Simulated assay, not measured.
Amino acid sequence: MDKSIKAAVALVVAGMAVAASAQEVVKIGTMSPLSGPQAHYGKDNVTGVRFAVEDLNAQGVTIGGKKIKFEVVAEDDAADPKQGTAAAQKLCDDKVAAVAGILNSGVAIPSSKIFNDCGVPFITGAATNPELTRPGYPGVFRIIANDNALGAALAGYAADTLKLKNVAVIDDRTAYGQGLANVFKKDAGAKGVNIVATEFTNDKATDFMAILTSIKAKKPDAIFYGGMDAQAGPMLRQMVQLGMTNVKFFGGDGICTAELAKLATGTKTLGNVICADGGASLAKMPGGTEWKKRYDAKNPGVFQVYSPYFYDATMLIVDAMKRADSTDPKKYLPELRKSEYSGVTAKIAFQENGELKVPLYTLSNYVAGKKTPIGE
């Protein structure tokens, strides 16, 4: 080979080596139930993070003088606190730079301590129990309204708008379901609603006939259920079997999904559902409509509720990294706390405790089997 050609090849190889050394891989962790009855939520959540990472990598982000390639590390927490804390520790061991994830409050609350102890910032766009932010960990954030807001909104609608007098309450004994039910009971009771029964089940149950039969004897105007759609769907079907077709059915974001209509299999009680999401409706989100078109085109049939929040959580983390010009959590965390980020879901800014400064919520019902924001 000619010496000049050899020299040219050597220069190209050297240039490629320099380019490779100037690229840094940054891992973004996420975890949600990817198995079990809540896997449809988990797939949507993780896909929201992946969608953000795809957009970021297409942008060609440079931080600290290096081109960054973001990678997603996803773990299955199975909606179980024990498996969830093991998954959280695994993300720490994998040296993720941040975590955008977790559906269930019962998983998020113990996992938040693990992330705090290993110095990894954590943002949830789904776990709503107020206890999550109570310890005051500096790297824990929530970009969705918590149960205090949702429970109060549902209680207000039941008492002030529908003028309901007698309501039964069921919860699934999880941190999420029980916490939301307690807020509803407190706020509804303060508005003069009579809580005629308080029952509980679990987040694996499918047979609610005994509970519903007991409640039916109390002649409630409505049932409030603190839990997820995997239980709410069968519950609605069994209410029909017991002739409880005029009883309203209230719940939080855990039941407020497109999947609920499938799980209820077209039963007439679906039309009695009033549920609350912790955020604006897609149509009222700053970028919701356009974002969902892109999301559905690439991920048909995946969308449930929370993916735009996990998309925003991922983008918010990287925005803080850019402003700090560092992917080191110790360096970008102060910028994350000062965020004023215009996301798909909202303008995101935090209180000192990591909660949103301006939490929003949306009440919805089901019209012709389709989840529909009330008043839109």
Rank of each mutant, 00 (worst) to 15 (best):
D117I: 02
A346P: 00
T372W: 08
D44K: 03
K27S: 13
P33A: 06
P220R: 04
L316G: 01
I374T: 03
A14T: 05
E259C: 15
I223C: 02
K185L: 15
D229V: 07
A217W: 11
R134I: 13
A39Q: 15
M1L: 03
A188Y: 12
I28L: 01
G15A: 06
D203P: 02
M31F: 14
I374L: 06
A8W: 08
K165W: 07
Q89T: 06
D44M: 07
G189F: 05
Y311F: 14
K204I: 05
E376H: 07
M315A: 10
V167K: 10
L34M: 14
G177F: 03
G179P: 14
K347V: 00
F350I: 04
Q178M: 04
G254I: 05
A155I: 12
E75Q: 15
P110V: 07
L333G: 06
M239E: 07
P121T: 08
P334F: 05
N194Y: 04
T62E: 10
D328M: 00
K90V: 04
E259T: 14
S35E: 13
F184A: 15
A100H: 00
G119M: 05
K268R: 12
S21D: 04
G192L: 03
A22T: 10
I109W: 14
G65C: 07
E24V: 09
